[in-house]
Design a protein around this nucleic acid. Structure first.
Ligand SMILES: NC(=O)c1ccc[n+]([C@@H]2O[C@H](COP(=O)([O-])OP(=O)(O)OC[C@H]3O[C@@H](n4cnc5c(N)ncnc54)[C@H](O)[C@@H]3O)[C@@H](O)[C@H]2O)c1
Ligand SMILES: NC(=O)c1ccc[n+]([C@@H]2O[C@H](COP(=O)([O-])OP(=O)(O)OC[C@H]3O[C@@H](n4cnc5c(N)ncnc54)[C@H](O)[C@@H]3O)[C@@H](O)[C@H]2O)c1
Lengths: 231, 231
DNA sequence: ACGACTTTGTGCGCACGTTCACAAGCGCCT
DNA sequence: AGGCGCTTGTGAACGTGCGCACAAAGTCGT
């Protein structure tokens, strides 16, 4: 199923999800010429508790120096290696509509070793266009391309109605990691990971808490129940 | 404080995060004319365990009928009410670049009561343009608009370098829910919720697992004794 | 009317994640 | 060299979430 039961020996999922945040904070520090950082400082920059940060980093190894902190550049390298950023990851985007255009042109991809190698669509008015320096290909070419160049990550940016079909084709082409922007559940065979980015869900979660806050404002200081902040 | 078996109105965060998924699955069922659904069917459609689904729904109340299942339309209404979708949520988008354009034109907003009421940017080549039927305003107008029409949710789609400043202005304008697309940590005062959508993080998490899978494929079949490779 | 069948709602044990608090370790200063 | 101050790494307590398994509660057929 979509669930990933085993994180082999090692790093908890919750930690893995935070490593990119640490990496970004560390990169920012490195850019500012800062060579060393304490867990307290880095935790603040990453928006987490310092104990959690230390425990997270301890899963990678004992890379800190007691009494001093962590070497920024070294830690950048270690986290990058753990996340697999030392190698290039070829990415294909399927569905070059509003969102697909934005994604194809997104510089944030390349900065971490993600290289957009192919764009696909079915709409004949889009196919053949050059977007962000790449020609949009017909979806039918996906199978052929898979033989030439292995695609590591497939991005689904089509309407929800077509997402499962697109996903199936990606999987058939050997893709084992899918990032899904369509608002639907994708089912994939074992061994394939799907992560979804769901704008609508995020907004609804915000709305829930917003409504909660409105109610709390009415009841106000009379209510002794603790305020909860979304995470 | 004693641990009461029945907490009045507290819905776990994990449940809140799944309600939009259930809602979407239910809406799809309703569109297909299906009036009633079992927890097993709905759970499959939503990609979760059926026991988890039932427990989630039980937090809203006892809306199911034993031996039968849940009334689809009724449940849509209840979940929508709980999430606050019965009311309109005015949304403002700041940063009308690649991503901001896509967001402004996204139909998925309106379908759940999220109404984009204002677009902001600082770039004079963008300000004044009409995007998705709305004129892009200078960011300076934000404070003025806040007096006229309350903005419930602010969407940050500017580069990371400007995100904190934009966020501060949104908060100053009375916004208490922020959806952040910029790859950075936003700090906000108590009472303000921030959720972030981070494409780069998602890709890095996928890369981590992809790398893990690659290693497992190499070692996998031989690994019976849990060989731990020293680094 | 009643029993067989279906499905909900939930108690319970377990695993995971978070936070506190502190000993162990390191550099620096005298 | 040795003490001092600082920071890491982690044991332990705590909280949250997950899923099994089952009794309770309803429907349906006869
Ligand atoms: N635009 C946004 O801001 C936004 C935000 C969040 C989620 N989404 C979701 O992302 C997806 C794309 O959104 P969009 O606004 O870009 O829509 P869009 O309609 O602008 O683009 C969809 C593109 O997918 C192509 N397509 C359709 N079927 C296809 C198929 N079978 N194979 C390949 N390509 C196919 C279409 O030709 C079109 O170019 C949708 O599921 C949408 O719900 C969009
Ligand atoms: N394009 C994508 O697919 C994508 C995906 C994920 C995340 N992001 C992130 O979303 C953000 C926007 O991405 P983009 O591709 O649209 O960038 P972009 O450069 O195309 O657009 C940014 C827009 O923000 C405006 N802006 C800059 N400073 C501002 C300020 N202080 N106030 C108001 N507006 C301001 C700019 O004028 C520009 O129009 C970035 O942080 C990016 O990292 C983008």
């Amino acid at each position: 199923m979509t669930h990933d039961p085993v994180t082999p020996r090692g790093i908890p999922d919750a930690t893995v999800a935070r490593l990119p945040v640490y990496l970004r904070a560390l990169s920012a520090l490195a850019d500012r010429g800062i060579a060393s950082v304490s867990s307290e400082e880095l935790a603040t920059a990453a928006g987490v508790n310092s104990a959690k940060l230390r425990k997270d980093l301890s899963h990678l190894g004992s890379y800190g120096v007691r009494g001093v902190g962590y070497d920024v550049e070294f830690l950048v390298h270690q986290i990058g290696r753990e996340l697999g950023l030392t190698q290039d990851w070829p990415v294909a985007i399927v569905g070059i509509g509003n969102l697909g255009h934005a994604l194809a042109g997104y510089a944030g991809f390349a900065s971490k070793g993600f290289r957009v190698v192919a764009l696909f669509d079915v709409d004949s008015t889009v196919v053949g266009d050059v977007v962000a320096g790449l020609r949009v290909r017909p979806l039918a070419d996906l199978a052929a391309l898979a033989g030439t160049e292995q695609i590591a990550i497939g991005v689904v940016a089509t309407p929800a109605a077509n997402a499962q079909d697109v996903c199936d084709r990606l999987v058939a082409a050997g893709v084992r990691s899918v990032l899904n922007f369509a608002p639907c559940v994708l089912s994939v065979p074992d061994g394939v990971d799907v992560r979804k980015v769901d704008l609508s869900t995020e907004l609804q979660i915000l709305a829930f808490h917003e409504q909660r806050k409105a109610v709390r404002d009415l009841v106000g200081p009379l209510d002794e129940l603790g305020a909860r902040v979304a995470r």
